[in-house]
């Protein structure tokens, strides 16, 4: 690596905050064999850049001086940002577009067998014919209903449990420990049990989605409620705010950013759960459509399913982002992002 340097000392296994042009927040994390420089450019993007640290051989405390570490991102960010808004869209999508072209070319020339992977043109054609005969819409509607109702249940359950354990000590004692134990279970491992309990109808699928996505909502909201600035709570007391009003005006709005983070995780998990649930046993839904296609070696239909899943994930992420910008408009970061 090369470019601007960050000078600092590394010691122990903790994190060393540092500042440089391209980073908002940088932490240095030492593992056993490698050291990463992690930067939080914004909440969504995490970059890990390995850095070279000359360590004395045999030193047990992992300490050493950082010389000329080096981030290509930081070095290039400044001059590029000036013209990036204009050319940004083009440069950003040039590479994926080129890859799709390459894929199409490989299929057309017979380099890639369509038995392994359908060509992009074929995927579009299949998608269109599936839409025309209505099977895509039907399956999509079924999948959306499952994910939607599962998420709705998860939201209600996660928020209620987080309120109970966040707002009272007794509630925390009762609710938090069992949930912390349960969340370490991989939810997908419960599929056989759920089929035994709920049969093979809609219930196990919705239950699986609900279970998997409750945890991120619960954990984040609980954390959000517990980490409200005690000074604001004190202020509410001096203003004579009732408990109900304090919850409504101080605690809940203060925990909202964390709730939305939890919601974004939950949405991602809900699609994951759905894919598994629909592929294990189902007679409808996008997952079922894909498993059906497998029997007839229809890679084009499988790929249409994948595209749909991808688009659904993208769309739901956008919805949560939209919620964040509208509900959290008081945060300076959002205002800057919007005016830029």
């Amino acid at each position: 690596m090369h470019g601007e340097a960050i000078f600092g000392r590394l010691s122990g296994s903790g994190s060393v905050p540092a500042r440089s042009a391209g980073y908002n927040q940088i932490t240095l994390n030492c593992g056993m064999n490698n050291i990463y420089l992690t930067s939080r450019m914004n909440q969504a993007k995490l970059r890990r850049i390995p850095i070279e640290v000359p360590l004395k051989e045999g030193t047990a405390d992992m300490s050493g001086t950082l010389i000329r570490t080096v981030s290509p991102v930081a070095a290039r960010a400044a001059p590029r940002s000036a013209w990036r808004p204009r050319l940004g869209v083009l440069t950003r999508y040039a590479s994926p577009f080129f890859l799709v072209l390459l894929w199409q070319a490989a299929c057309s020339t017979g380099l890639l067998s369509t038995r392994l992977v359908a060509s992009p043109a074929q995927i579009v054609a299949t998608g269109w014919s599936l839409t025309r005969d209505g099977s895509l819409q039907t399956n999509l509607a079924v999948s959306l209903a499952r994910a939607g109702s599962g998420l709705a249940i998860a939201f209600v359950a996660g928020v209620s449990l987080a309120l109970i354990s966040g707002l009272s000590r007794l509630g925390e004692d009762i609710v938090d420990a069992p949930l912390q134990i349960l969340r370490t279970l991989p939810a997908l491992a419960l599929v056989p049990l759920f089929i035994l309990w709920f049969g093979i109808g809609e219930t196990p699928k919705i239950a699986l989605v609900a279970l998997g996505s409750s945890f991120p909502i619960y954990l984040n909201l609980h954390k959000g409620i517990r980490s409200i600035d005690p000074k604001l709570l004190e202020m509410a007391r001096t203003l004579g705010l009732s408990r109900a009003r304090t919850i409504r005006d101080v605690i809940l709005p203060g925990a909202l950013p964390d709730l939305l983070v939890g919601l974004r995780f939950a949405v991602g998990i809900s699609w994951l759960m759905l894919v598994v649930a629909e592929q294990v046993n189902a007679d409808s839904g996008i997952g079922h459509m894909m498993m059906d296609a497998e029997d007839f070696l229809r890679t084009d239909i499988i790929l249409v399913g994948l595209v749909i899943y991808g688009l659904l994930g993208l769309a739901s992420d956008q919805i949560v982002r939209f919620l964040e910008t509208t509900l959290l408009s008081w945060r300076p970061s959002h205002r800057i992002a919007r005016s830029a």
Partner: peptide, 24 residues
Amino acid sequence: EVSVVFQESRLLPWKRVWQNTVLG
């Protein structure tokens, strides 16, 4: 009827200035 002003303003960041003023 007492009021306190602290060293930090302790305004709720999610309420506009006027809403903070008449909070409660």
